[in-house]
Amino acid sequence: MTFSRPRRRTLLRAAPLLLATCALTPALASCTHASERLDAESNAVPEVDLSGIEEVPEIADLVPAEIRERGELINGAALNYAPGEFVGSSGEAIGYDIDILAAIGAVLGLTTRTEAAVFAQIIPAVGATYDLGISSFTVNAERLEAVTMVSYFQAGIAYAVKAGNPYDIHPEDLCGKRVALQVGTYQEELSIERSQECRDAGEPPYDILAYTSNSDAATNVAGGKGDILMADSPVAAYAVARSRGTLEAIGEIEESALNGIVVAKDQPELAEALRAALQHLIDSGHMERILAAWGNDAGMIPTAEVNPQP
């Protein structure tokens, strides 16, 4: 059956429960939890060579004098959202957002530093504790009232099934199917709504398999315990990329929305510097290379914008 769109768009990421007790500190190792890491597989964390990215003087000149003199961009991020931003095996911040930040720093001639933060506390702290926030923020009207956002990526809801789709699963018809997802996410909320729509239509509801992590959900789909993985598109794409051929993507990305870097409203010069740096990375092919390494080049956008329409 075909489902109606949900009544509202909710943030396309899990609530950062695991970091809720972590202090806002650069000591990332103190916020490390086993459940925030990927398995220690040889292909789990790609090595992205950023050495070929050089400073672009005319873009670097756009950086506000205070940050230029400091020589460092300080980022706040909730490090529990692989592959965007999470904690590496040595306690360091890793992920495609962290690589993009480093690439921006190279273009601007600045070093970069990411501090672990509670997701809900990043925006209020941007402009004071942090220069910016790159942490898989969806661009929406509410955020644009509070901060400036610079678009750099596009994400939505995506699906994956066991390779070969042996159960003949179709994302638009999941009544009675075993839907694996992460507990506490928008996907769980949406699945509950859609499950009720199945009941209202006289069909069996979803068999919702809610796991503590997307990694567990993906593993159980690959192993045949679940019929389909439902997750944010970056998460689903990365799960497929690192599944060693046991998972495949299926269907179209739903509710696609821009992600943006958060900057304080009183820092228009910094926002423009970030936009120009991002556009340089897009035009030069570096952005595609970074995202492809993390299995997420499908999220590429052609143009970075300051305060794009959501």
Rank of each mutant, 00 (worst) to 15 (best):
I123Y: 00
Q187V: 11
Y206R: 15
I98Y: 07
R194K: 15
E193H: 08
V179L: 10
S215G: 11
L79Y: 05
D97W: 10
G84Q: 09
A103D: 08
A77T: 01
T129L: 03
V139F: 10
P124K: 03
V107R: 02
N80I: 01
S215R: 15
S90F: 01
Y96N: 13
A160V: 00
S89M: 01
S90V: 03
A125C: 08
M149P: 09
A201C: 07
I157A: 08
E92D: 14
Y159W: 07
V161E: 08
K177S: 11
I169T: 11
A106G: 06
R113M: 05
S215Q: 12
S135P: 09
F86D: 01
G105M: 06
V126Q: 05
G109A: 14
N165Y: 04
Y159H: 12
K177W: 13
E72V: 07
P204C: 06
F153K: 10
R199M: 11
I134P: 00
T148K: 11
I122R: 09
I104C: 09
A120R: 12
V179C: 13
G71P: 01
Y81F: 03
C175M: 06
A102D: 04
A103L: 07
G202R: 12
T129C: 06
Y206D: 13
R143I: 06
S195Q: 14
I208K: 15
V150A: 10
N140W: 03
A78K: 02
N75K: 08
G88T: 05
Q154F: 00
P205Q: 06
F86W: 10
L108E: 07
D200M: 08
Q154D: 14
G88P: 01
S90H: 02
S90L: 09
K162G: 03
G164T: 07
P171W: 15
V150F: 02
H170W: 12
C175T: 14
N214K: 03
I192Y: 15
V107G: 01
E142P: 04
E92Q: 14
K177H: 14
K177I: 12
A141G: 05
T111A: 13
T148P: 08
D200I: 04
N80M: 00
P204F: 08
V183F: 01
T148C: 11
A160W: 05
F86Q: 00
I104K: 09
E142M: 15
E193V: 15
I157T: 12
A106W: 00
G84N: 04
N75C: 00
P204Y: 06
V161C: 04
R194L: 14
A103S: 09
E188V: 11
I192S: 15
V87L: 07
A155F: 02
L174V: 13
N165E: 12
Q187R: 08
G127Y: 04
Y186D: 05
G105Q: 07
L101G: 12
G84Y: 04
A93M: 03
P205W: 10
A125H: 04
E145N: 06
L101Q: 08
G88I: 01
Q121C: 04
Y167F: 15
V118N: 03
I94Q: 03
T114I: 00
A160H: 06
S89N: 03
V87C: 06
G133D: 04
G95D: 04
A201F: 07
L190K: 10
V118L: 10
G105V: 06
R178Q: 05
A117D: 03
S213D: 07
G127P: 00
G95N: 02
Q154C: 10
D173Q: 05
S195H: 11
D216L: 15
I157V: 12
S151V: 13
